[in-house]
Design a protein around this nucleic acid. Structure first.
Lengths: 130, 130
DNA sequence: ATGAGTGCTTCGGATTCCGAAGCACTGCCG
DNA sequence: CGGCAGTGCTTCGGAATCCGAAGCACTCAT
């Protein structure tokens, strides 16, 4: 299973040597689908295939990888019936994500009534502005 | 610049068709280095190369990509002197990340005094537990 | 004018992600 | 009992993404 190691506080983070726990968390969360999985698992325990469907049919191989990482990081665990849940620590993480949710609503509102500025859509507009 | 489109509320998200703003946010944040960049820019405006150094020397090509995405998403902008900052919306996002920081501390503490369970380190231990 | 620093691009190779297919297994239901 | 659908999970080839070294055009201090 040739994958990069699960980020953990105390150990050096991918591309870093400091190992500060915040950086480890940012690295862990900054992997595709991780945030989404935590979010979906926070609602209710889910089996593998059902969880996969909730995540817009994400790749099963990556889902397996993410679930392993989350287990190693002690955010998720398997129930006796085989379904996946968040540990108490995992639920904490999800709650910590709450403000992000609220923000995303503001974000959506902001973008709705703000017409794109000339600077943005023409991505190659500014160059060598020294 | 062959890159996947910047996630935006209202538009379908990568691998999804719902376009809910939360999913867009999770997709945006769930790209490597994005959270880290927001974090670093929240402290102070930074020029390209300095920001790169703050992010453990991340790849310049990816940094450029991320910065463009963040600008399109209106989280970041360029100052007159060429350095990058967070927009007010971007600062909101960073503040929304605050609880995640606090959580990462608890996470570190939790992992510190919790010996690894047999289930974890031997990743290939459990198979076909039907 | 020379050297150091900047923002940014290019490009080949490494890593990661993807999705279809398949395996072994457990329920069902007739 | 014999299908048959559903499960968790793996494999594997190809696509997308990431990486880092190198370089370009430019500015500014010396």
């Amino acid at each position: 299973m040739n994958a990069s190691p699960t980020p953990m506080p105390g150990r050096p983070v991918r591309g870093s040597t400091t190992g500060r726990s915040l950086m480890a968390a940012l690295d862990l969360f900054g992997r595709r689908w991780t945030l989404r999985i935590i979010w979906e698992l926070g609602n209710e325990p889910l089996g593998f295939r059902l969880l996969q469907r909730r995540c817009d049919g994400m790749s099963s191989s990556v889902l397996r990888q993410r679930l392993t990482e989350l287990q190693e990081a002690r955010l998720a665990e398997v129930l006796r019936d085989g379904s996946y849940t968040l540990t108490p620590l995992g639920h904490d993480a999800r709650e910590a994500l709450g403000p992000v949710i609220e923000w995303s609503l503001r974000w959506a509102a902001e973008l709705a009534d703000a017409p794109p500025t000339a600077a943005e859509d023409a991505g190659d507009s500014q160059r060598n502005r020294f």
